[in-house]
């Protein structure tokens, strides 16, 4: 018994620096955010804020044009679209890379990894100026060559959403290709041979052999990607709503929406309520997926 408590003490002693740091920098700010979310703290009430109960939460959830619900819907749409495109494209490309006796796949793989290796914000800014800008942007230069007027791609809601999706796809595909590629190499080749003898085509082989075989292997990585896509901030923020350089499109995801309410319109109480709501959604989602995993 004594040994056991000594063990516990020793364990906490060793891990306390790390746990204290996490407590101070992560947990305490989250608790403070929760506290702010019940107040009317804003730029006019920096110190003399008062408690307003659940008003901020009511404003976010039940006021129809609050912007939060539409941002949430948009984020879900964004996640679904991105994930479907990523999974399909990565699966096709990884399958092609794994065709037998295909030489030079290593070179192609390395080249296709470059978008992942580049610092994310650099790539996004390069896309913003290099591709979408109405003057220097390559897309507009091509349009001009075709005799068309330049388009401000990031100004309209729909076109900006498409642009953001393309950039996000560009950033995220390499990781997915690599995961799929690794999973495909683990599939037993002999399964295919007998399927070919039975006259199964490429599509049938994919549906009946490959996908069931790799599903378990790629599941954790896919789950992580769902989370990162849902939490995507950089792409939307840098492309459309940098402070002082808004492009005119309003395609807030929940994260950029929370950020804008905190640092641009300075509605701290409201923004904190949004933050807590997002955190609750994320926790719910993690618990749900965690339980599903155990049941299997």
């Amino acid at each position: 018994m004594k040994k056991k408590s000594k063990n516990t003490l020793w364990a906490y002693l060793c891990s306390s620096p790390s746990l204290i740091l996490i407590l101070l920098i992560i947990i305490f700010p989250i608790l403070y955010t929760a506290y702010i979310s019940f107040t009317n703290m804003n730029v006019y009430h920096w110190f003399d804020f008062e408690f307003v109960g659940l008003k901020n939460y009511r404003d976010a959830l039940f006021v129809f044009d609050s912007g939060f619900l539409s941002a949430l819907l948009r984020t879900v749409l964004w996640t679904v679209v991105s994930m479907i495109l990523q999974l399909v494209i990565a699966f096709v490309l990884a399958s092609l890379l794994n065709i037998q006796n295909f030489r030079g796949r290593r070179i192609y793989k390395t080249l296709l990894m470059i978008p992942w290796a580049m610092p994310g914000y650099v790539s996004i800014l390069l896309w913003k100026t290099g591709m979408f800008n109405s003057q220097f942007g390559l897309l507009n230069q091509w349009l001009e060559k075709l005799g068309m007027n330049p388009i401000r791609f990031l100004a309209g809601d729909v076109s900006a959403f498409i642009c953001c999706s393309v950039v996000n796809l560009w950033l995220a595909l390499p990781f997915m290709i690599m995961i799929m590629d690794g999973a495909l190499q683990a599939v037993d080749r002999s399964c295919y041979e007998s399927a070919v003898l039975d006259g199964a085509g490429w599509f049938q082989r994919a549906v009946y052999i490959t996908i069931p075989a790799i599903r378990q292997i790629i599941a954790p990585s896919v789950l992580i990607t769902v989370f990162t896509t849902f939490k995507q901030f950089d792409v939307v923020y840098l492309l459309t709503c940098q402070s002082g350089a808004r492009t005119g499109a309003n395609i807030h995801t929940i994260l950029t929406y929370a950020y804008e309410n905190a640092f641009i319109t300075n509605n701290y109480g409201y923004s904190s309520a949004i933050s807590i709501l997002i955190f609750v959604i994320l926790i719910g989602f993690s618990l749900l997926t965690g339980r599903r995993k155990k049941e299997r």
């Binding site: 989250i30 702010i36 901030f233 994260l255 929370a258 904190s272 997002i278 955190f279 994320l282």
Partner: peptide, 15 residues
């Protein structure tokens, strides 16, 4: 693991 899913942007103002 739950904290790992919390994006730090959200508590930026509190920090």
């Amino acid at each position: 693991i739950l904290l790992y899913s919390f994006p730090s942007v959200l508590s930026m103002f509190a920090i």
